[in-house]
Each structure stands twice: as structure tokens, then as C-alpha cells.
Computed example of a mutant assay.
Amino acid sequence: MPERSFFGHRVQALDTVFITGASSGIGWALAEYYAARGAVLGVCARRREPLQELCARWPGQLHAYPLDVTDAAAMRAAGEDFIARAGVPDIVIANAGVSVGTLTEHAEDLDTIRRVMDVNFFGMVATFAPFLGGMRRAGAGRLVGIASLAGIRGLPGAEAYSASKAAAISYLESLRLELRGSGVAVVTISPGYIRTPMTATNPFPMPFLLSADAAAPRFARAIARGSSYVVIPWQMALVGKALRVLPNQLYDRLLAGAPRKPRGSG
């Protein structure tokens, strides 16, 4: 398949890609990116209408699966259906995620904390599960997990979100080790601030903010390289490295009073 130009970049055609959280933000932008290069896609999200709109934009290329990624049975059925229609995918992107301000002291936040963990961590596992066996047998492919810079260290007011992304990062690392030598690459992408509905409620400055459309080709290049771990944009990678090495006493002093996402806002 010939090269095409998208977002100003020349890209090679791919065969099959499965993306969760495709109804908006990063997932939507990645679906557009890959569809523009001729890929056949499975797109998954809870909201049916945006998926139908996305399919209408790329007729004949997309298969829509309106479901919740925490429903493992529904995810497996979607995976089996997509494989039957398009074959074992070249790339599976576990992008679905939620971000909600939470505080442990509020009993009413406990269900929200469980939900965040279920979507951001378990949903990633449930996304990969239907495809992993086929990809291992094929000896090829990319399993891509969208983590977050927030998973490097805990952020105030984001106990659930930081914990869920830290869990995702550790899970992806374990999976990468398990699949070493199999031909299946595991790619961890930790974005900084991306302009999406999820970040729209953040009441604080977001340095090096990227639009989802600008972020998508950067994500795709990291996926194509099979990068084991990457922070996007690169400026936030420097921030992440600094956060890792700060002693607790200094980190606490700097971050304890930082602005935070309001409780209950996602």
C-alpha cells in the first residue's frame, strides 16, 4: 500500500489495529491516524454514537465495538469477532482510561476509586487478553499500553489515577519480560498533558500541552519503533526523570500544595 500524508508526516500503510477508548481524545486521533494510512481497525468505547461517526468517516475500514473494557467477556467476544473479520491485529492499543479527582477520606469516593482502577488497569489486561495468544503464535505484533506521567509518583488529589497508572506501568513491564523473544513487543507510552475531554477540567497550568492530533503521530512513531517505554512530549520526559530521583522530603515539600483536579471531575 502506498505512503500517505497525515498531520504533515509520511507514513507506511499497516494492516490491522485495535484501539480502545476510541470515541474521543487520543483514541479518536490514533484511529484517524491509522485509518488514513489504510489500516483496518477495530474501535472500542462505551459510547456508540461517536464510534458510528468514526466509522462513517472511514467506510469499510472500521469495525465498531460499543462496550466497557472492564467487561472481560464482552472484550473477548469483540476480540474474537475482530480476528474473524480482519485477522490477528498488528497493533493493539489499550487506551481507554478515566481520570477523576478522589480523596480516600470520603467514603463516597471508594466506588469511584475502584472504577478508576478497573478501567485504567484491569481494562488494559482485558484488552490484551483476547489477542495475546494469536500474536504470540504469529511471533509478531505490538501490545501498546497508554499509561501516564502521573504513574511515576503519586500526585495529590489523584490517589486513584496515580495508583492505576503506576499499576499499568508495572504490569506492562512484567508483560514485556514475559514476551521477550516471542516477537511480540510491549510498548509503554506515558503521555504528559494532552488536550482531551479528560484534561479539560484541570484547573491548573499544563506545561507542554499537546493536542491529540499532534500527539497521535508521535505515539505512532514510538509504536512503530517498538519502544519499550517513552514519555511524550520529550520535555515531560525530563520532568519525569527529575521526579524519579527527588528525595521524598523534597518531593513532598514541592508537591503537597500543588493544584489538583477537583473531586468528582473527570
Rank of each mutant, 00 (worst) to 15 (best):
F6H: 09
G8H: 14
R10F: 14
D15T: 13
G27S: 03
A29G: 15
A29L: 07
L30Q: 09
A31T: 04
Y34D: 04
A35G: 11
L41W: 03
L54F: 08
A56L: 08
P59N: 11
Y65M: 02
Y65W: 08
L67M: 12
D68A: 12
D71A: 10
A72G: 05
A73F: 06
A74V: 05
R76H: 11
A78N: 07
G79P: 00
E80D: 15
F82T: 04
I93W: 00
V98R: 15
V98I: 14
V98E: 14
S99R: 01
V100A: 07
A107Q: 07
D109I: 11
R114V: 09
R115D: 12
M117Y: 08
V119R: 01
V125S: 06
M135P: 02
R137C: 10
A140C: 09
G145A: 08
G151P: 13
P156E: 11
G157C: 12
A158Y: 04
S164H: 09
K165Q: 10
K165T: 06
I169Y: 08
S170G: 12
L177K: 05
R180T: 10
G181I: 10
S182W: 02
P191E: 08
Y193N: 08
A200N: 11
P203H: 09
D213I: 06
A224G: 14
G226F: 09
S227V: 15
S227W: 15
V231N: 02
V231P: 00
P233L: 07
P233K: 06
M236G: 01
L238T: 06
L238W: 13
P247C: 05
N248I: 01
Q249F: 00
Q249V: 00
R253T: 04
L255S: 12
A256H: 06
A258H: 07
